[in-house]
Design a protein around this nucleic acid. Structure first.
Length: 262
DNA sequence: ATGGTGGAAGGTCCA
């Protein structure tokens, strides 16, 4: 049995109490965090080790971005990746000693204007996704999990209104095409949708800017867990922990849990 | 019809 969590925490230091709740409630073996927003010297290694995660792989920078893998399972190897020629701290991987190669990815949000000619952030996002596809195409592996905040809601029911969202970054056709190319290059399985297939609406993020987020429920499924075909038939359970959005000082993303038999 | 909120920093930038 292998239990993995992925969560965009939007600052690890602010979210330590909720991280502890996640650990106590779900007892995951591995937690992938995005947007830790703390440089190495400010990262709460001691507190996280006290929660039972002795193995920590961190790729971070001051202020923005930053990804971490917290694990009860030792690492055989870890790697940080420079993406689109920026030391942006958005992609880290570890080889777990249970044979799984685990990638934790934070795809750029891409700004507000859905036009590559007028928005360098959007270009950066598109190039980032292309680079992910190239990377995974060139380095096939049969026991692989890729998870994180991809900042793209690829399916119609990953957003509250498919048609209304087509011009909103995270659901534009060009992003969806690129994410699909990435997805298809490894014949990956969308672990979340394998348990909650369309047309069910599935969201993992609700904007901070909407105080009525619960009533309006205009969420998006931006966070993903994919796996290679070899481990796909052994998915026991997937949970999207929406209650974390109701806690005091929540992240705008909620944790996602997947339990696999490996 | 632009703003709404949150976080890191201690300016504004980013989401």
């Amino acid at each position: 049995m292998f239990k993995i969590a992925t969560w965009n925490v939007n600052s690890i230091r602010i979210r330590l109490n909720l991280l502890a709740k996640l650990v106590y409630d779900e007892i995951p073996d591995v937690i992938c965090l995005q947007e830790v927003k703390a440089k190495e010297a400010d990262f709460p290694f001691t507190e996280i080790k006290k929660l039972g995660f002795e193995n920590i792989a961190l790729y971070s920078m001051p202020g923005y971005n930053g990804v971490a893998i917290l694990s009860k399972i030792p690492f055989l190897k870890e790697q940080k990746y420079t993406r689109v020629e920026k030391n942006d701290a958005r992609h880290i991987s570890v080889e777990l000693n249970n044979g799984i190669e685990l990638h934790n990815v934070y795809v750029p949000a891409g700004g507000d204007i859905p036009d590559a000619n007028n928005n360098p952030s959007f270009v950066h996002k598109l190039n980032f996704i292309d680079e992910m596809k190239d990377f995974f195409e060139k380095t096939p592996n049969k026991k692989r999990i890729i998870c994180g905040d991809f900042n793209v809601a690829p399916l119609d029911n990953d957003v509250w209104n498919h048609k209304a969202m087509l011009k909103i970054i995270s659901h534009t056709p060009i992003e969806i095409e690129k994410v699909n190319n990435w997805f298809n290059c490894g014949k990956f399985i969308d672990i979340i949708r394998s348990i909650y297939p369309e047309p069910e609406k599935v969201y993992s993020w609700w904007s901070y800017r909407n105080p009525n987020w619960q009533t309006n429920n205009k969420g998006r499924r931006l966070d993903h867990i994919w796996c290679s075909p070899d481990i796909a038939q052994k998915i026991n359970e997937v949970k999207i922990l929406k209650s974390f959005r109701l806690q005091e000082r929540p992240s705008d993303h909620v944790p996602i849990i997947a339990e696999l038999e490996i």
